Simulated assay, not measured.
Amino acid sequence: MSTMRRHDTIYAVVGSPEARDVVTAPAEKYAARRMRSEAQESRTSFFCSIAVGGCGSKLKLAAGDMRIPYFSHAPQAVCDLSDATARDGYTHLAIQEELKRWIEGTTSLRCDLEVATSDRKGRSDLVVRDAEDTHRLGLEIQLSPLTHAEMQRRSNIYLKCMNHVQWLYGHEEIQACRSQVERGGYAFRVRIDMETKECDLGYFGFHGGGSLQTAWRPLRDWIVRRNGLYSPSIKSVLEEAKAKAEIEHASKPKPPPETYQSIYTGLSEEYGSVLTAEYAAVRERVIAAIYRSARKGQLDESTAVELLVWLRDLTKHSAWWRRQLLGPGRKGPEIVIRVLEVYRSQKQ
């Protein structure tokens, strides 16, 4: 246990330590002072949320002249929340509440939060069910790192007591999110403005030309289906993104036919003949991922040629390839994304 620094949190809940109504300290001091005055007039108190792992103690909204407003613990308070834990925890809590409010306010469905599975081995963020409780949809909000294997393990637990599970990722870098794109073509993402509590959902996937993007739409543009969330208007957003990518792709000079295939074949033969089997396998996975993405149309040929030529001339030791380009658990598009990131960073 460690004493929490008094300036560590800009979040709190209102009314009680068990409350789920998240508030954010305004960045502007006069707005923060108004919030504090209104709370005093209504005899409302701010608390460190137990739901996010906080200590449950009462907080004071500090709004001085020298520092950005923040919620302060009492000097004697002891709290384990760190900056990162508090940020993710309160964001997760706010998203849960906003999704529940939206679902119950626009449908006849029920929405329960933090529902334990029948075997007590898991706890689902949101369970959406019809009035007869004949069909259950689980919505899982994931803001912290998660592997594909762990996502599958948890999904299997949830599916023992519900019909469908849909994951909503807060960050596109989450490995499970990338893996879902590789296997299904897209993944779902979620974000929220912590001051206004406006929440958006989005499709994350390839939009043409090797570009991974998220197409966002506000909650009002989504509907709840038996097997998950769907946005009728997202189709036009995806089509616009695809058209833009195709225009950019058309403006690039085209390499000679099969150039990238010949480079790929040459590299495969070269690595197989001059490297040890282990190192050859590492590099083979990297260039094979680029080749497959180009063949599928996810990566344009000119970009594939640039990357393969760069890799051909790269003199880094194979351990660097494994650490920087391959990484633990990366597959297909994830490898291509990482290669693009490293390539562009070294070209700057």
Rank of each mutant, 00 (worst) to 15 (best):
E98T: 15
T147M: 00
C111L: 06
G138P: 00
Y158Q: 03
R123E: 12
R136Y: 02
E150L: 01
A131C: 11
S118G: 09
D133C: 09
D130R: 13
T107C: 06
L113Q: 15
E98Y: 01
L137V: 00
R110K: 12
V128I: 11
N156T: 00
D119G: 09
R154W: 03
R129F: 08
R87Y: 10
H148F: 13
S155P: 01
A149N: 05
Y158R: 10
A149Y: 00
C161E: 08
I141T: 07
R123G: 09
K100Y: 02
M162E: 00
L139D: 07
A116T: 01
D133T: 04
I157N: 09
L139F: 05
I141Y: 09
W102G: 13
L93P: 04
V128H: 10
T147N: 05
D130G: 14
S144E: 02
D112H: 12
L93N: 05
T117H: 11
R110L: 10
A116F: 13
L146T: 03
L93F: 05
S108T: 12
D130M: 07
T107S: 15
H92E: 02
A131R: 15
R110I: 08
H92W: 03
L137G: 09
A116Y: 13
I95L: 09
C161H: 14
S118L: 09
G122E: 09
H135R: 07
L137E: 01
A86E: 06
R101I: 03
T91H: 04
H148N: 03
A116S: 14
R87M: 03
R123A: 06
T134Y: 04
I103V: 15
R123F: 10
I103A: 08
Q96W: 03
N156G: 14
E97W: 04
M162C: 13
I141N: 08
Q152I: 00
A116I: 00
V128R: 02
